[in-house]
C-alpha cells in the first residue's frame, strides 16, 4: 500500500554541524565548521539545575526536537512523538555497569532513571509540557528506518503531524567495544499527513519484502564526519532532503524489509491554491 507524508520540519545537531543549516550546506559540498564548537547543545528546556547533569543523549534529543517543531511552526505540546536510539545513553550504561561491578549499593538514583531508553522522551514531554503519547524504540542497525516507519505510520493512521527524533551518542568504557558509536548525533523530523506552508518535501512510501536488500548508501561529504555514529542510517534521507531534488531511496527496516521512499521537494506553496 502506497502512502504519502510530508516533511514539515527538520533539525540536526552534531559538534561539527550544530544545525540543519550547517548539515545542509555540508551535504551540498559547503562544509563550514562552526566558529565555536560546543561538545553538546545546552538543554535549555530543562531546569537550570538539571542542565549540567543531563546525559548527552537528552541534551541532543531535546535540541533537535525543539528546532524541528519551530521549523514546522507547531506547538510541541500538541505532538505525539517517536524517539529512536540504537543503544540509548552508552555513557550512563557504562557508568551504571561499572558501579554495579564494584559497589552496587552506590548506584546513583539519577543515573538509574537516566539509564532508561525513554529518558530523552520523558524529559522532552516534561520540558514542553506535552501530555500526548511518545514511544522510545530500537532496532539495532535498522533503528533509523524502523522508527521512521513507526512515525510515518502514526502520521497516516492518526491523521496528525508527529515528531520523530533519532540520536546516538559516543560509546564509553569497555561497553564501547561491543556497542560501537562515535561522536554525538541527533536529528529530528516533523512528519504530517498533509502539506502545510512549512512543508519542504513530500515522501511517498511503501514497504516490501526484499531478500537481496541493498539500502541506499550514504556518499555525501557528511559520511566521513558522521559514519562512526550508530545513527548514521539517517544520512541517506538527510542528504536527499538537503539536495532538494526528486529522488528515490531505499532504506532497510529489517534485514529483508525495505522502506521504499520517493522524495519530491515541496516549497510549502501548494497549500495556497484555492
Amino acid at each position: 500500500m502506497r502512502q504519502r507524508i510530508f516533511v514539515d520540519g527538520i533539525a540536526f545537531w552534531s559538534p561539527q554541524l550544530p544545525s540543519w543549516e550547517h548539515a545542509r550546506a555540508a551535504c551540498n559540498g559547503d562544509y563550514r565548521p562552526p566558529t565555536t564548537a560546543a561538545a553538546r547543545p545546552t538543554p535549555t528546556l530543562l531546569a537550570p539545575t538539571e542542565r549540567r547533569r543531563a546525559p548527552d543523549s537528552v541534551a541532543v534529543a531535546l535540541e533537535v526536537a525543539a528546532r524541528a517543531c519551530e521549523q514546522a511552526e507547531l506547538d510541541p505540546a500538541t505532538l505525539c512523538s517517536v524517539f529512536a536510539s540504537t543503544h540509548g545513553d552508552l555513557a550512563v550504561t557504562d557508568s551504571v555497569c561499572e558501579t554495579l561491578a564494584k559497589t552496587p549499593l552506590l548506584t546513583s538514583p539519577t543515573k538509574f532513571h537516566n539509564s532508561v531508553h525513554n529518558a530523552a522522551a520523558g524529559y522532552w514531554t516534561i520540558g514542553v509540557q506535552c501530555l500526548r503519547p511518545y514511544t522510545a524504540v530500537s532496532a539495532w542497525h535498522y533503528t533509523f528506518a524502523a522508527a521512521l516507519l513507526e512515525a510515518a505510520t502514526q502520521a497516516v493512521v492518526q491523521q496528525e503531524p508527529i515528531l520523530y527524533v533519532a540520536y546516538d551518542i559516543a560509546a564509553r568504557g569497555p561497553l564501547g567495544t561491543m556497542a560501537q558509536s562515535a561522536g554525538l548525533l541527533g536529528t529530528a523530523l516533523v512528519l504530517a499527513p498533509g502539506p502545510s506552508n512549512t512543508t519542504i518535501a513530500q515522501l511517498d512510501w511503501f514497504t516490501r519484502h526484499n531478500a537481496a536488500l541493498t539500502a541506499t548508501a550514504s556518499d555525501s561529504p557528511l559520511t566521513p564526519i558522521l559514519a562512526g555514529n550508530a545513527m548514521h542510517g539517517c544520512l541517506p534521507l538527510l542528504e536527499a532532503l538537503a539536495a532538494g531534488s526528486h529522488r528515490n531511496l531505499s532504506l532497510a527496516v529489517s534485514a529483508q524489509l525495505e522502506l521504499a521512499l520517493e522524495l519530491r521537494p515541496h516549497n510549502g506553496e501548494n497549500t495556497q491554491t484555492p
Partner: peptide, 21 residues
C-alpha cells in the same frame, strides 16, 4: 530481545523493540 525473537520465530518483516520502561 527483538533480534533474538525475529530469529527464533523465523520472521522477516517489521521487528522493533519498544523500551518505555
Amino acid at each position: 530481545l527483538g533480534d533474538f525473537l525475529q530469529h527464533a520465530l523465523g520472521l522477516s518483516g517489521y521487528a522493533l523493540t519498544v523500551a518505555t520502561a
